[in-house]
Design a protein around this nucleic acid. Sequence first.
DNA 1: TACTATGTTGACTATTTTAGTCAACATTAT
DNA 2: ATAATGTTGACTAAAATAGTCAACATAGTA
Lengths: 147, 147
Amino acid sequence: MKLSTRTRYGTRALLELALHRGEGPVFLKDIARQQQISLSYLEHLVAPLISGGIVRSIKGPKGGVTLAKKPEEIRLLEVNRLLEGSLAPVECVDNPDICERSAKCVTRDIWGEVKAAMNSVLEATTLQDLVERQKKKGLNQSKMYYI
Amino acid sequence: MKLSTRTRYGTRALLELALHRGEGPVFLKDIARQQQISLSYLEHLVAPLISGGIVRSIKGPKGGVTLAKKPEEIRLLEVNRLLEGSLAPVECVDNPDICERSAKCVTRDIWGEVKAAMNSVLEATTLQDLVERQKKKGLNQSKMYYI
DNA sequence: TACTATGTTGACTATTTTAGTCAACATTAT
DNA sequence: ATAATGTTGACTAAAATAGTCAACATAGTA
């Protein structure tokens, strides 16, 4: 039950964009460096976010990427969906027809509940929430220095 | 975020044992046939359940396997843990030390919440719950015939 | 006792998925 | 024109998962 690096890297990249919101486009190169992943790989992660309407890109020198929506409108569930597909722990949760047992299978019901539980967390969390948590952490951490 | 076949097959096998509880040991061969998986593979799934204290096995002719505990004492979380390890969507949720960002990483916090949400569902569900759901489904389905 | 039907274990292979690279291309500021 | 960016698709590498096979251990029964 591991998350792919796509979702992990992608979510962090978006958070980075959210933190730099209003400062104009950010170079993918810079994000790649900051997160210590290759530019090529990052480009592949960003592509679905662009086609999914979450990121806007500008080509050419002085180009880069920015968020295409307000951070409070970008839910982690959507990010995960674009980068990794459904959270269904087993295929039959989304497509009952692929297994003849689906109708009477009680384990399938449980996997459905697991999916719903995950969905609920990621549906409830937006990039803006991450930004605020980050700010709060920063404050707490700097407070530490004075104790 | 897919569940491994180990957890899926293993959970179904345990449900089968729970349904046959009190009827003496069941042959792995029979479970394998019923679930349409190879005996060899099933043996490998059952091994950790035995060493984990969930299943009891009897060798020799007239051998087989049974539940080592009451179905209401067997939580799906434990089954999953034995067959697949932790539900942590990323390693750093369980082992903060593997990443230097852990302390200040807000995405990590979210992955922790996702893990907690999944845990909560599987912690709350026992084999007995599955048995009862199965019975209820059976009733509802047979009711259908009379409508 | 010998035989046979079961479970046990470990090494191995195959398959699938994930991760990542590379190269050719498109666009735009200067 | 050129150079710095993003875009796309084909390809390779690595890791995880799924599954097989063979040798062994144990216990019931003829």
